[in-house]
Design a protein around this nucleic acid. Sequence first.
DNA 1: AATGAATGAGCCTTCATTCAT
DNA 2: TATGAATGAAGGCTCATTCAT
Lengths: 198, 198, 198, 198
Amino acid sequence: MTREPTQKRSIEKKQRIKDAAFDLMAENGYHNTSSNEIAKKAGVSIGTFYSYFKDKKDLYEELVGDIYEYVISSTATDLNDPSDDQDPRMIAEQIIRKVLQSHYYKKDFQKEIASLSQQSDEFRMIEDRYRQHVPELFMGIIRDSGLKLRVADPEVSARIVMTTVESVIHETVFNGDGSQDERVISELTDLVFRYLFV
Amino acid sequence: MTREPTQKRSIEKKQRIKDAAFDLMAENGYHNTSSNEIAKKAGVSIGTFYSYFKDKKDLYEELVGDIYEYVISSTATDLNDPSDDQDPRMIAEQIIRKVLQSHYYKKDFQKEIASLSQQSDEFRMIEDRYRQHVPELFMGIIRDSGLKLRVADPEVSARIVMTTVESVIHETVFNGDGSQDERVISELTDLVFRYLFV
Amino acid sequence: MTREPTQKRSIEKKQRIKDAAFDLMAENGYHNTSSNEIAKKAGVSIGTFYSYFKDKKDLYEELVGDIYEYVISSTATDLNDPSDDQDPRMIAEQIIRKVLQSHYYKKDFQKEIASLSQQSDEFRMIEDRYRQHVPELFMGIIRDSGLKLRVADPEVSARIVMTTVESVIHETVFNGDGSQDERVISELTDLVFRYLFV
Amino acid sequence: MTREPTQKRSIEKKQRIKDAAFDLMAENGYHNTSSNEIAKKAGVSIGTFYSYFKDKKDLYEELVGDIYEYVISSTATDLNDPSDDQDPRMIAEQIIRKVLQSHYYKKDFQKEIASLSQQSDEFRMIEDRYRQHVPELFMGIIRDSGLKLRVADPEVSARIVMTTVESVIHETVFNGDGSQDERVISELTDLVFRYLFV
DNA sequence: AATGAATGAGCCTTCATTCAT
DNA sequence: TATGAATGAAGGCTCATTCAT
């Protein structure tokens, strides 16, 4: 039975554990980070660790959830604003820019997520539990914008675009040095625009 | 102290250990492969294992070295042949095709290398020790070809091109299904050609 | 330091803890029942638990005490009544019947007591602290009845009879299904009667 | 993967672990005996412990097996001798005496087996895996003796007799002090003789 | 050289118990 | 008094590595 903290002190403590885990796993990887190490860095006892999390994997799951929650909500907030701007190219660029930005949030930890998901189905399933909401988000944005798509099968097209954008940005952020970011945005925007709208 | 085998039997034995490790680590990952397991699969005792390798990481280092040696030497062999062909587009395509091909050599193990390098500095440093020779190789090929580059700073440009090619191919091979390989080669060739030579 | 509750609310609270412990330990055994679990089932905090009991073993000790107190007092009450009946066979049967009945009181918990006592000296000593009063009780009943025993050494004989009765009933109740109870009573009565009085 | 020792030194070592476990579990019970404690008392490392036994329960299982093997084989040896003696009463007494004797072999550990089997199905199943051979043994002895039984359903009768003998002896040995052993043998012999043969 | 039994540091996890609020 | 968050000793177990044979 894990405990859900309600008091301020406890919430802070649970957050301290998460922060320590974010740092350590980003630095040394999930497998090279022990529960005891996390607890020590967070300044709590190992018992406290296990009163908030069923086990190390449970903690990881929450961390992934937090990442996706942040990414999704921050993206949604900015893009769902009813703007007058209906230029499809601008909308595409905004989305792409947003996705790129979100990759910089806890970048090293996101890299570890990607790495673990690549390594084992177990971890991939954990990520997919949250990742599946991302396409939904963007589908919604496109739908709400009232834009007309030129593609025959929007469902499939959306998935293709998502994958392309995601993988290029993934590569750019995780393995690049930031210098190519603007060029990547520009190229991707062009790609998406031509594919979906022209 | 580890021993460098000189006799035929010993060389074979060391190779058997490496082959077992290649297979097991490609299949289950570095962390889920124990030294004892490798020794058993190789048909040698764990004691023999440790007479050839200082520790598990030392073995990994040799495996990475073997991969890069193969990749570099096979690439160099084909491309350094003094061919009459001086068409820069052809040269670019040959190089790119070669890089893509080399990613298929022990593909799953290369994927594990990438994954581990992403996970911790310690592993990244091991890979970098060999990876650094790759740009040198291609710089040499370009230099030897006598081609004129249009870019201002060849050093930087080379690095940019390398990174782009490498990352796109990485993505294509490790996460793709092979069906897009030719299109990727064609697009990358175009990209490199226009960037470096036009 | 544990507190002896004087107010009605507190007495109830302590009893609730005991009841929860009776149930949980009868169900899952002493070792598979945690203090926290007991407190939760009793609807009190773990802190309250430890204000009434020094530790888990202290609670167990009280539970054993309560069992024996009930068994002894209820037996004594019924049997010490100055009845006109002086038939030794009837007296023997009444005692035996009483002992059998008492084994059904919190039967599963009594089984756990027996099991723990068998497992370690520590637990056996706890039980023996209370168990020793049982022979005294029966010795007193016999003495008060004014019956003449045929045995040479009443002290030793009493112990033998006690052990026999106790162990047979133990076996009958804890490992039987109740169908043999009457036959066991009848046989035991006969055994005791012939041994002590004829 | 547990290792089955073949060399003399190793066999001794595995036996040392078992002996330590016999002692400690008889003394303090299964649950109050830790793997580390056993290894320490046996003078081996915890790693060695786990190279011979999958886990603590696996060790326990072997101990139970050893007990039953000893009990069964020693019983069988003495009783299967083709003796001229065909007196059913004598045969019955010999068997009963043997069963009683066998309860004294590692008595305290056998008590712990009984205790654990009573406590949980999991442990009972472990014991039953071996215990089931006991009735077979005695059925065979009776069959081989060529004696005629007076009971209608030998299968059921055998089971009843077994249970009776077993439980009375169990009680006598585990909870008695040895002083009643001869009387118990005599009475049980009488019971069995009258039930099965007269 | 080769073997593989043996080692023990270190990981994950539980739970009886304490103590600040 | 009551609470329950926090503690940390201790237990089960794995696996990289050593060393006597």
